[in-house]
Design a protein around this nucleic acid. Structure first.
Length: 577
RNA sequence: GCGCUUGUAGCUCAAUUGGAUAGAGCGCCUGACUUCGGAUCAGGAGGUUGAGGGUUCAAAUCCUUCCGGGCGCACCA
């Protein structure tokens, strides 16, 4: 039950009807009208800007129009206690206690559905995220995008959409060859005591390669490691398998499970690249041409040559993009176009990609390709997860792949824990950089907002324990006619904002709104809880060691919302801490 | 040089998808522990939302010009 939607509908219907009776003028679109949460200082529950939106077209002052409309809104509405007009032209509505009672009944009776955005059409989504190169374990840099992608999926799933979570495995190209070579040299190091060359910049120096090498040796006793060229194909497969094993373990410890791992090699081997480029050629999106060197860059190494290009400038990109390398093999972009064509063939309504900030420059070209292939704008939505600035002991910590010197996901989970990591990474908007102070989070983990929200749930659980019940037990109340105090109504109002939070998070694909909302809800709860110190009437457990039904309903409703919010974020809500 | 992105309190960040007097946490100051769980709460100080211009009844939010961060810029993925 989304009370904002209910009243938005009602107001839109009202003005449309008034328009039919020639009482007022309305614009073509009513989209500007909204019903919102008023700032706390106003003594009202919801507010609408309808009068300000319609004032101009009606040549009336917003205040006058608001007065006229507010009378009509209140008429025949049993739920409204009072309605008044505020300064620029807002109409502010305050509900009766009976309205909030009915609201709580709805929440309790449909606890699993509360918050779900029902007016949205159900879609089939494909969310691609992480897709880190299979050349080693995940490090902290991958973490944020991974969590954002997972929680975006959770929000969509919560809203009953079909979602496939996919990881694109870049198991093709030069990096993989270098990676395989590195594994090979580590194997030689182990078997033949040949020292691993540490001065070759193309090789992967990390210690984890030793583990990969050991595993491959012990699991492939019959394999001979005498000639790289002879076994490179087999070894590539084995190496990728090993590093994917690591990556899956890392993802698992973050609480992330992809539904599907798509392989680049498979797409290339199936000839999908050639097919999709032929298709684009037919529509004249692909041509042979030259691209100019970027201005301001060092041009000494620039070799101008004719190559196969995709006309991404037709879609707003700043240059056309190369599909073939100088050796005539496909570029990464070419096989990614094929991969996205593969996604399109699987008939998803909307494709979502979560990219790291360093790949933001890539968005236009891949969106262009998807638009060219599907004929639809906005078929592919790319969300960027900004950089995580690591700070260790007060100083920025630079990770370097060369030295193999980086904090892995596993380090992070071991020291901070899955739940805290997820909560902190989400507690900021995805397109703002985030400071992650490794030392601070470790030392002061109790100051973490995660615990603040969990503590709210634990306190509620403890009340239920006192009366020998469990928070998650179903409660049956026949008569909802309680008298809630203004402090309690403040809490109920916050509960009523949950569906709005879900709606905005899902429309904008902004998962950070969920933990921020939960923090605010928890704050209101803790504040109310502490009132019980001065005023025993406000305690949940009364003198007879019982909890009255009105309080049970309130606690139950709060715990429902916390629980479903925490489920979306993918963290636990323990009953005891 | 171009493109994307970002600039809000001393610090880290929110801001209901353009709304009302811009809010939290940390830090600082004052208070609440014989506690329904103090991992909590009440209060105080702290702001020209980087700067200018524009659109709007209404701008931190949209447009524009500067300034400052970050990321990226064929033949890597």
């Amino acid at each position: 039950m989304n009370i904002f939607d209910i009243y938005l509908d009602k107001i839109k219907k009202l003005v449309t009807a008034l328009n039919k009776e020639k009482e007022i003028e309305i614009p073509e679109s009513l989209n500007g009208i909204n019903v919102d949460i008023p700032p706390p200082k106003f003594d009202c529950d919801i507010s609408t800007n309808v009068a300000m939106v319609l004032a101009k077209i009606n040549k009336k002052s917003p205040i006058d129009l608001a007065k006229q409309l507010s009378g009509l809104i209140k008429k025949d509405d049993k739920n409204i206690h009072s309605i008044n007009v505020a300064k620029p032209g807002f109409i502010n509505i305050k509900f009766k206690g009976s309205f909030w009672n009915n609201f709580l009944k709805e929440v309790i009776d449909n606890q699993k559905d509360f918050g779900i955005n029902k007016k949205q059409k159900k879609h089939k989504y494909l969310v691609e995220f992480v897709s880190a190169n299979p050349t080693g374990p995940l490090h902290v840099g991958h973490c944020r995008g991974a969590i954002i992608g997972d929680v975006i999926s959770n929000i969509l799933i919560f809203n009953k959409h079909d979602v496939v979570k996919e990881y694109y495995v870049n198991d093709h190209g030069n990096q993989i060859i270098n990676f395989t070579k590195s594994v090979y040299l580590r194997i030689r190091e182990i078997l033949n005591n040949e020292k691993f060359p540490t001065n070759d910049a193309d090789l992967y120096p990390g210690d984890y390669l030793i583990d990969i090498a050991k595993n491959i040796i012990s699991e492939n006793k019959t394999l001979k490691f005498e000639n790289f060229d002879k076994i490179s194909k087999e070894l590539t497969k084995l190496s990728i398998k090993e590093s994917l094993k690591m990556i899956k373990l890392n993802l698992n410890s973050l609480g992330i499970n992809h539904d599907n791992f798509a392989s680049e090699t498979e797409i290339v081997n199936n000839n999908e690249v050639k097919l999709v480029i032929d298709e684009l050629k037919k529509d004249k999106f692909v041509y042979k041409g030259k691209i100019n060197a970027p201005k301001g860059e060092d041009k000494t190494e620039w070799i101008e040559r004719e190559q196969l290009l995709f006309r991404s400038t037709d879609f707003g990109d700043d240059k056309d993009r190369a599909l073939q390398k100088s050796d005539n093999s496909w570029t990464y972009f070419a096989s990614d176009v094929a991969y996205h064509n593969n996604k399109l063939k699987r008939k998803f309504d909307i494709l979502i990609n979560i990219l790291g900030a360093d790949h933001a420059g890539y968005i236009k070209r891949i969106c262009s390709a998807v638009e060219a292939l599907s004929g639809q704008k906005n078929k592919l939505i790319c969300k960027v997860s900004q950089l995580v600035k690591l700070i260790k002991e007060g100083k920025p910590f630079k990770m370097s792949k060369r030295k193999g010197d980086y904090i892995t996901v596993q380090d992070l989970i071991n020291e901070v824990g899955k739940d805290a990591t997820r909560f902190i990474m989400l507690n900021r908007s995805g397109d703002a950089e985030l400071d992650f102070d490794f030392t601070k989070v470790k030392e002061k983990s109790r100051d973490n907002p995660l615990y603040y929200v969990q503590y709210c749930y634990a306190r509620i659980s403890s009340v239920f324990r006192h009366i020998n019940k469990n928070v998650s037990d179903k409660i049956i109340i026949t008569n909802y006619n309680f008298n809630y105090s203004s402090d309690e109504i403040k809490l109920i109002k916050k509960i009523s904002q949950w569906p709005k939070c879900v709606e905005v998070s899902s429309n904008k694909l902004e998962p950070h709104r969920v933990p921020i909302y939960l923090y605010e809800l928890a704050a209101d709860f803790h504040s109310y809880w502490n009132m019980g110190k001065d005023n025993k009437d406000k305690r949940f457990i009364n003198k007879d060691n019982k909890v009255s039904n009105d309080k049970i309903v309130l606690l139950k409703a709060i715990s429902n919302v916390v629980k479903s919010g925490m489920n979306i974020i993918g963290v636990n809500s323990p009953e005891k801490m």
